[in-house]
Design a protein around this nucleic acid. Structure first.
Lengths: 229, 229
DNA sequence: TAAAGCTATAATGTCGACACTATAACCAAG
DNA sequence: CTTGGTTATAGTGTCGACATTATAGCTTTA
């Protein structure tokens, strides 16, 4: 689970931060259902904290785009829809494409080696059909490249905001057996480009990879019982 | 100033929202100097509001990346540095490139006509050497294309977060006479590509345009007295 | 019966006060 | 004089209470 440490968060020293982390996990993992309205008194009582701290935590969740808020009405967990999923993938295509380009230029040799190792781990897990942990490996792969871009703002934007949404959708789509073999091949090409320090190619391949992932995810989502945004 | 209405904000009904807008403007226009530490009691007294409301507004500013916060220490206005400026431009290159591609695909004919009109306005102001308002025209141009992408999340990310930083830097760099003739030519090519519905070309041209703008801005920033992040 | 207005209730927005933490000034010891 | 520890102070984090707004249910009237 390097993708958790790779991203954030420092030890949450304040109550609001702990609450934020707890609620964030609860939302991402579906404990709190999508689209549900948040009752401040109720949640505050459930977690044994003051409404003030809770409101601060909700504010942070709003910035992560995990809840939406309307004045004098309240906050509710985001829903999910194919349109939103496409929007997220369009942003990922652009931003992670750039990240791959920058990673090819800025990654240290050591980081490239580590990236190759993640790929080998991915390969091993495919051989053993451990599809349950492949999601984590996939996140590790993408986070490593994003980190390698060395663009702090890009890193925060992707790891800290956008990937929350990715995990939000991924948990709800839950493809039993995913396209991991295909994804592995694409990952392999990307790493090769980075090893050659070919930023242009790395960007092109990453964009292709994310488009393919998008098509697959959208198909799965539309095959689900139903969805709503 | 269509760029203001084009972006947000609904009538700020709550105190915290009004405060947020006021503080945001004050920061962007340099009323509150970059890098300054925020004293909650002081600011709350200055604006005649409670610390609670102020803290909520500061939270929103933190999400816009206009202030940074550390637990038990406090918040301070962001500084500026060449590195950060480069980071912002790298994100803009990727995100606005994608926006231009999507705009070429999704803009209505009406919107394309409006975009062309903005360009003519730009041309007219160049002829009259009204460089003081060219910044607004430039923002109008970019915001129109971003809106044309029809990707709500991308729109929010760019118009609502990243462009605050653009304005933050732009106000402090304050190029007396900018590269408006060159920029106009580049804008012209982009609009032509969008009119032809050539998304691929629109993206390429937009990325080129933003790279050129980056080189120019960085040169200006490094020629300034000094800078700090 | 349906629609409009009113009332009661619950939830959100706002505030002031208290608790805890970090910083700075001061003092003491080497 | 410098360094380490201690204390005082200012500032942030947290909380409970009040004010204001939205919502649901009831009443009234056409």
């Amino acid at each position: 689970m390097a993708f958790l440490t790779a991203c954030k968060l420092q030890d949450p020293v304040t109550i609001a931060d702990k609450l934020f982390i707890d609620l964030r996990r609860a939302i991402l993992e579906g404990e709190i259902p999508a689209g549900k309205k948040i009752s401040e008194p109720e949640l505050a009582a459930a977690y044994g904290v003051s409404r003030g701290s809770l409101r601060e935590a909700i504010g942070k969740l709003e910035n992560c785009n995990l809840v939406t808020r309307k004045p004098n009405i309240g906050a509710r967990i985001i829903g999910f829809s194919t349109e939103q999923l496409v929007e997220i993938y369009q942003i990922r295509e652009a931003a992670e494409g750039m990240a791959a380009r920058l990673a090819a230029e800025n990654m240290t040799e050591e980081e490239v080696v580590r990236l190759r190792k993640i790929l080998e781990q991915h390969k091993a897990e495919i051989a053993q059909h451990q599809s349950y942990s492949q999601h984590d490996v996939d996140l590790d792969f993408h986070f490593s490249i994003i980190q390698g871009s060395k663009n702090k703002r890009l890193i925060r934007m992707l790891c800290q905001d956008l990937y929350d949404l990715v995990r939000f959708y991924r948990f709800r789509i839950q493809s039993g057996l995913s396209r991991s073999e295909q994804a592995f091949q694409e990952h392999n090409l990307i790493v090769s480009a980075i090893e050659r320090r070919d930023g242009e190619m790395a960007e092109t391949l990453m964009r292709h990879h994310i488009r393919a992932s998008r098509d697959y995810s959208c198909k799965l989502l539309e095959a689900m019982p139903h969805s709503e945004g």
